[in-house]
Design a protein around this nucleic acid. Structure first.
Lengths: 333, 333
DNA sequence: ATGAAAGCGCTAACAT
DNA sequence: ATGTTAGCGCTTTCAT
């Protein structure tokens, strides 16, 4: 009885065939006689043989693995993305290595400078702080796709929804509800370069202006507490309340709702609130949260597809992903 | 200019040294002359050299990678676990491959039968449906640790909190609040073999019986909808309401709260609700959720530690993890 | 402190 | 349909 792990050669010997034949069996090469196949299979089972993936990858020159790099895996959006990426990778026989940057610039630099280049066949990278230019100037040649919002013009395929159109759809929903005093809680300054802000303005322009500057607030971050703080300011500044609020993310929306409820303001009767992202909790919160849902499975599948055939990208800058309006209690309750 | 990716040999040539010396530099071997080190480093930078991990792993006989296998990555508990496992792996210079079983028995069988055996140095496996016995009888020798609840006596190190003590602590909290009519929404039948149920009973016994069977409900699953359905039944059966509910998971608790609020029952004034797991949403929900928090960082670190030194386990069955009571609005609001 | 050479286990020409 | 063999790029004794 051999004590070390069985190798291809051990299987070959036991089956009385060559390594090549065993390799053929393992890799599903079609032209093998039934008898040989059976003998090889028997030997494999008897020995409990499993191919050494390091060796296979070295010989093949491929890793059979993709890297997914996100800021933090325990943020629901990234967790959901990861789930779908793993599923999509399985469909092409690959596995997924996951890394977290924490949004740290140095960590993000390491990613584009090739930290994983000889370990994976491609990277799905969701950057947070690094700039598009720096990504565009990378020297590492590992195939790369960028899901998310902050990465136009980075010289790599960018997977995302049309944020402006989506924000417009969300705002339009508030208008269709008959709301006339609309506000927005966004992230970052409300510039024209921010597509979600642009979409919000556009929806207003469609029907005539209805927003007042005092209802436009910039949250300090993307967390629920940030949304709560922003909403509290809107409530406490002594001016009349808006009757509809579009929040740039679901977390902001949940925080905003919390601030409203704690001030005795009803949602959606007094103020309708809609978010953006469709995080799972929005479906079970009280009230449940209306939002924009992006098709995450589609993002994942497109990402893997692009990495499998690098260079084939139809459009090197944007692969558009579907989105839809999800109406729940926070606007329609 | 070479067009293919630079290898160790290319670096060696450019620096005028042997491959061994370059290898020494890369791996931080201490006894290298400053001059040599500088020349090698210069050559590495100039060529943009990165070691091929497949080759390294093959030569070393290790993968430098651990597998984390969970039912679903987008369930907050597993996402949080994954986050910490990745961090813990980094501390020992390893990376993490993540897989999902969906709780599917066949997928779980594949895991313990060695699907990853030659790809990773160890597995952190969170099984859902496979039995402890089947795990104990596995033939694959890949180091394995089992975080979670359902896997005592599986012949592999099991990482978890003392569920019974934790459930008792949660229930005790309700009692300390002065609640006298306590109920529980659990998963699976309320048998003595279920530690969370046992802990609940024990807390009651500590102070004299206060639970009635009609307040003990078994949810059909672990989702918010399941908790909502269970709570709705308790509300609508015409009997007096409990004034305190212990839910075996946070999702169940969030669903239960939702059912209460929709029936005009106040939380915590009329019914105090406490969950179990400390999922992130619980901190921002309205009302925020009291719960039992497990130390996930500790689970992850213990897991990696055990995988690094397989066989060293002090106790082959249970490495106990800390937990604590987190008091929020759903009980103390 | 550095070099030479033998694997690590598998794949893929090429041959038969 | 199956066998032979030369790598894949790195680590690691064993020398020096």
């Amino acid at each position: 009885m051999i004590t070390r792990k069985p190798r291809l050669e051990d299987v070959a010997q036991r089956a009385g065939v060559s390594m090549k034949t065993v390799s053929n069996v393992i890799n599903g090469y079609p032209h093998i006689s039934a008898k040989t196949l059976d003998r090889v299979q028997t030997a494999i089972d008897a020995l409990g043989y499993r191919p050494n993936l390091s060796a296979r990858n070295l010989a093949r020159g491929r890793a059979g693995m993709y890297a997914l790099i996100v800021p933090q895996l325990d943020r629901p959006y990234f967790a959901a993305l990861a789930r779908h990426v793993i599923d999509a990778a399985h469909e092409v026989g690959a596995v997924v290595l996951i890394e977290q940057t924490g949004g740290d610039l140095e960590a993000e630099r390491r990613v584009i400078s090739g930290e994983f280049s000889r370990r994976v066949d491609g990277m799905i990278f969701s950057p947070m702080t690094i700039g598009a230019e720096e990504i565009a100037n990378r020297s590492d040649a590992t195939p790369l796709v960028l899901p998310g919002e902050h990465v136009d013009q980075a010289g790599a395929p960018h997977l995302g929804i049309d944020n402006q159109a989506a924000a417009r759809l969300a705002t339009r929903h508030l208008i269709d509800l008959g709301r006339t005093r609309l506000g927005m809680i966004g992230v970052g300054r409300p510039r024209q370069s921010n597509p979600r802000y642009r979409g919000f303005r556009q929806a207003l322009t469609d029907v005539g202006p209805r927003a007042e500057p005092r209802w436009l607030r910039t949250a300090r971050g993307v967390s629920g507490a940030d949304g709560e703080a922003a909403m509290t300011k809107i409530i406490s500044d002594g001016n009349p309340l808006p009757d509809g609020i579009f929040c740039a993310t679901d977390w902001l929306a949940l925080g905003a709702i919390r601030a409203l409820l704690q001030n005795g303001i009803r949602v959606p009767e007094d103020v309708a609130v809609i978010g953006f992202d469709d995080i799972p909790y929005g479906a079970v919160s009280t009230p449940s949260l209306s939002t924009i849902a992006t098709n995450r499975g589609q993002i994942a599948q497109q990402a893997i597809r692009l990495l499998k055939a690098p260079g084939t990208e139809v459009d090197h800058d944007l692969a558009t992903i579907d989105f839809r309006l999800v109406i729940r209690e926070s606007t329609a309750g």
